[in-house]
Each structure stands twice: as structure tokens, then as C-alpha cells.
Amino acid sequence: MEYTTQSHGDYAAIKKEIWKVTIILSVLTIIELLLGLWIFLKPDMNHTLKLILKGTIIILMLAKSFYIVAYFMHLKHEIKNMIMTIILPLTLFIWFIIAFLYEGHSYNNLKNNYDRQYNEGTIKVNKAEYKHDAAKPATQEAAPEPAH
């Protein structure tokens, strides 16, 4: 079927745009890593602050995916029909994510409330000893037995 090739514009201008997007992606990645480092360096961090930092990381992740799809995959320069063909099916993810995470959370609450064994079955283990023991079978045998 007939289609029109987009005007590709000036080679130099496009290259400039590519490098601009590269720098944006790198900067966003570095900010993500710094936030991750912050969470790592403060293990006894306030729970709310931790959630805010993780939420920020997710927003940065979505921003990065926008730049990759819009500029590297060139979707921003397609016509509106094409953009909608791709984006509208993906809105199903909004339901997908909310429904399944809600379900998982609800399942955990049910287990904690009604399954005494589950609630009390989480035993504290001595970290150093546990790691040492668990590492042994893997280094000695080719196929380690399931630990639990």
C-alpha cells in the first residue's frame, strides 16, 4: 500500500537530536543510580522517604522509556494514526499493573490474618552462618538441591 516517506531533514540536525537524547538518557540514569545509592547508604531510612525515592526512580524510568520510544524508535515523528495504533493497546497496562499488585497485596494480608503458620513461620536466621552453609552445595555439586 502507498505510504509517504517522512522528510528526514538535515543529517546534521538529526545527529544533534540523537546526541541530545543520549545526554538526557545518561543524566536520567545517573540520577536513578544516585537515588539507588542514597537508599543503599541509609539502610535505616524512614519508610515514607524510601517509598518516595522508589517512586521517583519509577517516574525517571518512564521518562527514559518515553525518550527511547519517541526519538530512538522515531514514534514521535510518525503520524497520529500510527502513534495511537501503538499507544492505545498499551494502556491496558494501567489495569494490568493495578489489578495484579492489588491482588498480591491482598493475598499477603489474607495469609497474615488467617494462616498462623505463615505468619509465625518467618524465622530469623543468623546471616553469616546461613550464607556460608547455603553456598556450599552449589560449589560442590553441579546441580544444587532446592534450599527450601
Partner: peptide
């Protein structure tokens, strides 16, 4: 080599309880 593979998890949960596979 740390003992992690499908069906084997040597890592503890962050709160010190035993992790699942």
C-alpha cells in the same frame, strides 16, 4: 557460585528472615 540458581536461593530477606526461591 554463590549458590543461586533456579530453585535455590542463598540470600536472606532484608529483615533477616529466610528468603524464598
Amino acid at each position: 557460585h554463590e549458590g543461586a540458581w533456579w530453585g535455590s536461593n542463598p540470600f536472606l530477606n532484608s529483615d533477616g528472615t529466610a528468603g524464598t526461591v
